[in-house]
Simulated assay, not measured.
Amino acid sequence: MNILVVEDERRLADSIVDLLHTNNYAAEAVYDGAEGYDCAASGIYDLLILDVMLPHMDGFQIAKRLRRDRVGTPILMLTARSDVNDRIGGLNSGADYYLTKPFNTGELLACVRALLRRQGPQTEVLSYGNTTLDLSTSILSADGGDSIRLSAREFDLMRLLLTSQYRNISKETLLTKVWGYDSNADENHVEVYVSFLRKKLTSIGSNLHIEAIRRQGYHLEVTQDD
């Protein structure tokens, strides 16, 4: 399970991430509302822990835009504002649960578990267009076409693209998610592996194309038959 924490109080955000890591969840933090929205909109997270008072874009705005964009990631909203109207506003904006600060860590973990349970069993495959990625075998296949097993890096990259589909993922995000924060990899590595994937999509008869948008990153497009 992959959890994103959007909280501008860095010590609190990092302590939540540490707590989640201790309880065997993958988690990371961002400290700005606009960056939080961009990360959450990628659709690669299983849960969003979202503060209300954030720079550049507040939690209510983030939740509303995500729901407008049909991103269904569960949202646990955190805030020091405990007024009932604020709680109603949070829920109406698209949050699934509203937890006020200060909170008990046990209660936070209970909320996390409850929201993750609502998603039900995790999918075994990701599909878009005529193309399917089997998450248990790393096999990429196309309806009526061929199939091919991806390398570990190719699999991670393709999984992110299929999860986001038509939404752009920046090169910086791909570097972080696929190669890691501490890697010496640069944007050229992303371009090389995107090239690998394009060739493999063509080889299996996929109708997907990896589109590059300058300064915005990559997304998938379904090629329509003439």
Results as ranks from 00 to 15, higher is better:
residue 130 N to M: 05
residue 3 I to Y: 06
residue 58 D to A: 08
residue 150 L to H: 04
residue 77 M to F: 09
residue 1 M to W: 02
residue 120 G to V: 10
residue 149 R to I: 03
residue 126 L to V: 09
residue 174 L to A: 02
residue 155 F to M: 08
residue 44 I to N: 14
residue 35 E to M: 13
residue 130 N to D: 15
residue 30 V to C: 11
residue 134 D to G: 02
residue 78 L to D: 06
residue 23 N to F: 05
residue 121 P to S: 12
residue 150 L to D: 03
residue 63 A to D: 02
residue 154 E to C: 03
residue 31 Y to L: 07
residue 175 L to K: 09
residue 170 S to N: 08
residue 150 L to A: 04
residue 111 C to Q: 11
residue 63 A to I: 12
residue 24 N to W: 03
residue 47 L to V: 06
residue 37 Y to N: 06
residue 28 E to A: 12
residue 138 S to N: 14
residue 193 Y to W: 11
residue 62 I to K: 03
residue 153 R to F: 11
residue 151 S to V: 00
residue 170 S to R: 11
residue 171 K to I: 13
residue 192 V to P: 01
residue 39 C to D: 09
residue 136 S to A: 15
residue 189 H to Y: 13
residue 92 N to M: 12
residue 225 D to S: 13
residue 8 D to Q: 02
residue 14 D to S: 04
residue 110 A to Q: 12
residue 13 A to T: 01
residue 6 V to S: 05
residue 21 H to P: 00
residue 145 G to F: 06
residue 104 N to E: 15
residue 198 R to Q: 14
residue 80 A to Y: 05
residue 140 L to F: 04
residue 13 A to F: 02
residue 169 I to M: 13
residue 172 E to M: 12
residue 83 D to H: 13
residue 41 A to Q: 11
residue 88 I to T: 13
residue 212 A to D: 09
residue 210 I to N: 03
residue 87 R to K: 15
residue 63 A to N: 07
residue 195 S to L: 12
residue 148 I to C: 06
residue 157 L to D: 03
residue 224 Q to V: 11
residue 221 E to R: 14
residue 99 L to A: 08
residue 185 A to D: 12
residue 137 T to K: 04
residue 150 L to K: 10
residue 30 V to E: 08
residue 219 H to D: 02
residue 196 F to R: 10
residue 168 N to S: 14
residue 88 I to S: 05
residue 98 Y to K: 10
residue 148 I to G: 00
residue 62 I to V: 15
residue 115 L to T: 07
residue 202 T to Q: 12
residue 8 D to K: 02
residue 48 L to D: 08
residue 15 S to C: 04
residue 174 L to D: 02
residue 112 V to K: 03
residue 86 D to Q: 05
residue 199 K to S: 14
residue 220 L to N: 05
residue 61 Q to Y: 01
residue 154 E to I: 04
residue 135 L to D: 07
residue 27 A to M: 03
residue 108 L to Y: 08
residue 27 A to S: 12
residue 136 S to D: 14
residue 136 S to E: 14
residue 3 I to K: 03
residue 197 L to C: 09
residue 22 T to M: 11
residue 81 R to K: 15
residue 9 E to R: 07
residue 35 E to F: 06
residue 203 S to T: 08
residue 162 L to F: 04
residue 199 K to C: 00
residue 125 V to G: 01
residue 149 R to N: 04
residue 186 D to V: 13
residue 136 S to I: 00
residue 175 L to H: 09
residue 65 R to E: 14
residue 23 N to T: 02
residue 175 L to E: 06
residue 70 R to L: 10
residue 125 V to F: 11
residue 222 V to Y: 01
residue 166 Y to V: 13
residue 195 S to D: 15
residue 50 L to H: 06
residue 6 V to R: 06
residue 16 I to C: 05
residue 154 E to L: 05
residue 178 V to T: 14
residue 171 K to G: 15
residue 159 R to P: 00
residue 6 V to C: 03
residue 80 A to R: 09
residue 218 Y to F: 15
residue 10 R to F: 02
residue 133 L to A: 07
residue 123 T to F: 02
residue 37 Y to R: 02
residue 71 V to M: 07
residue 225 D to I: 11
residue 126 L to W: 05
residue 97 Y to G: 00
residue 183 S to P: 08
residue 78 L to Y: 03
residue 14 D to W: 06
residue 30 V to H: 05
residue 46 D to V: 06
